[in-house]
């Protein structure tokens, strides 16, 4: 992922000219892609993206470097807000039916896409690493991350023990972390 770190945040905090434009150009694509993946609704994904930028602009001190990378924090907020919307929409998660895989939606408007926002090699590496995970680990990670289900809900939905859910998530995350460690400093 391109290093959008504390300098970006400091520029926003200090109200430097073009700081929001620079942050947008560096990161809106990744935030929007995530919101769209979670919500499946372009207009809602745009609203979430805009809301997050508004929040950051109005409350720059909500972030602190002790919370980790600024870029990671932005994605955490984007994901949380998307999940909040998903939950408020009360969209049913289908019990007993095959779980939706990550979308293979074709976006006719994104030929020059959001790839500039994140390093393409990192994106393809994580996708490849994800594909290599056992199906049962992929499934729980997707439900937890993109559907916003907590451990108990996943356990109920997949009829697994809570311990199994937790261990599948932990194992899956460890493998992904290992796969990416060679790419990160």
């Amino acid at each position: 992922m391109s290093p959008i770190e504390t300098t970006h945040w400091e520029r926003i905090r200090d109200r430097k000219p073009d700081s929001l434009a620079d942050l947008y150009d560096g990161f809106a694509g990744a935030m929007f892609s995530l919101a769209l993946e979670v919500l499946g609704d372009r207009w809602e994904a745009e609203e979430v993206t805009q809301d997050v930028f508004a929040y950051v602009w109005k409350n720059p001190k909500a972030y602190s470097p002790v919370k980790g990378k600024f870029s990671s924090w932005l994605l955490v907020i984007t994901r949380n807000r998307s999940i909040d919307r998903l939950r408020s929409r009360k969209r049913k998660v289908v019990h007993g039916e095959p779980i939706e895989a990550l979308s293979n939606r074709q976006d006719h408007s994104s030929e020059d896409g959001a790839e500039h926002a994140v390093r393409a090699d990192e994106r393809s590496s994580i996708k490849e690493a994800f594909k290599q995970l056992p199906q049962d680990q992929r499934e729980v990670l997707e439900l937890a991350y993109f559907k916003g289900l907590n451990h108990q809900e996943i356990s109920d939905q997949l009829k697994l023990s809570l311990g199994t859910v937790k261990s599948r998530i932990r194992l899956g995350m460890e493998k992904l972390r290992r796969a990416l460690s060679s790419l990160r400093p």
């Binding site: 992922m1 508004a54 994901r79």
Partner: peptide, 24 residues
């Protein structure tokens, strides 16, 4: 937080409309 952002990369890349930039 970093782990979460790693998972975000699994999203299909999509570009927001340029109009969103102006609005933001």
């Amino acid at each position: 937080s970093d782990d979460w952002s790693t998972l975000a990369l699994l999203s299909n890349p999509s570009a927001p409309d340029s109009d969103l930039r102006s609005r933001t």
